[in-house]
């Protein structure tokens, strides 16, 4: 028991060290294309601005949506930005490239290295720039909303923890969808679903009814991603909801891992 604990700690430390080296490599790599950096951040800010404008226009006509006020909704929107930024810092960009890896057979190189291919893929493309604007803007929105809602600093640790749970759900969804890449080869469209997944996550869970609510909780859990962490900060804490999110995260992650490992067997390395 104790021994497996120690080896688990070693594994985590090793993963962190590896992440550090990949991050350093990617930074150097991104520096090669510096001009892109400014443009990408600018685009992110612009796009987040559009999202805020959307809600501002909605709230010009209504006072609450699903019981959420404008400032509470800003926390929702910002939380999606933060989860996305974290995803880009850990795994997201790699999955966008996965189709190319499979089509060209470059994926071979990941399969022969002593790291799990899904972890390696993510680390290989860790990106600071891809979503930096969105992350910063997300932080600003959450901060602004939090200042107006005023739930007190004590809520923050739980909020961060629940962002982590949402990140796990996001990862599981991404992994499960991308398992299909070994048949479909083109990852652009596959990942458009993953993109839509996060795009639709910023609406409060309370707007869903009936069958839709069940689907958006257990199959495509978009109703949990933003709503669960944001409800902690927005003064709408619901322990039942938090338990639900943890259960869904664990369930989806196990399912996605099984699916991914099974799909790997169907990789038919392109010989070019």
């Amino acid at each position: 028991m104790k021994r497996s604990g120690i080896s688990a700690v070693c594994a985590v430390r090793r993963t962190f060290r590896l992440y550090g080296s990949f991050l350093a490599q990617n930074l150097k790599n991104e520096m090669v294309y510096r001009a892109n950096f400014v443009l990408l951040v600018g685009m992110d800010l612009f796009f987040m601005g559009i999202n805020v404008a959307f809600f501002a226009i909605l709230y010009a006509n209504v006072t609450t949506i699903g019981g959420w006020t404008f400032h509470q909704t800003l926390i929702l929107v910002g939380s999606v930005g933060l989860v996305r930024e974290a995803a880009y810092l850990l795994f997201r960009q790699g999955f966008l490239e996965l189709g190319d890896y499979v089509r060209t057979g470059q994926f071979d190189a990941l399969l022969v290295k002593p790291i799990r291919p899904n972890i390696h893929l993510g680390f290989r493309h860790v990106s600071l720039t891809e979503s930096l604007g969105e992350g910063l803007m997300g932080l600003a929105l959450v901060g602004y909303g939090f200042a107006h809602v005023g739930t007190g600093w004590a809520a923050i640790p739980l909020y961060v923890l629940m962002l982590g749970v949402s990140l796990v759900i996001y990862y599981a969804f991404c992994l499960a969808i991308n398992s299909a890449v070994f048949w479909i080869i083109k990852s652009q469209e596959l990942n458009s679903i993953v993109y839509t997944f996060m795009e639709t996550a910023r609406y409060p869970r309370d707007i869903y009814r009936g069958l839709g609510k069940a689907i958006f909780t257990f199959v495509i859990p978009i109703s949990l991603i933003a709503t669960v962490p944001a409800s902690v900060l927005a003064g709408r804490l619901d322990w039942g909801l938090i338990a639900l999110a943890v259960i869904v995260a664990v369930g989806m992650m196990s399912g996605a891992t099984v699916l991914w490992n099974w799909s790997l067997r169907h990789y038919s390395s392109a010989s070019s």
Partner: peptide
């Protein structure tokens, strides 16, 4: 779902 919820709460978009 969003529009249904908004109009259900008595809101109206322009």
């Amino acid at each position: 779902f969003l529009w249904t919820a908004i109009y259900g709460e008595g809101g109206r978009m322009g």
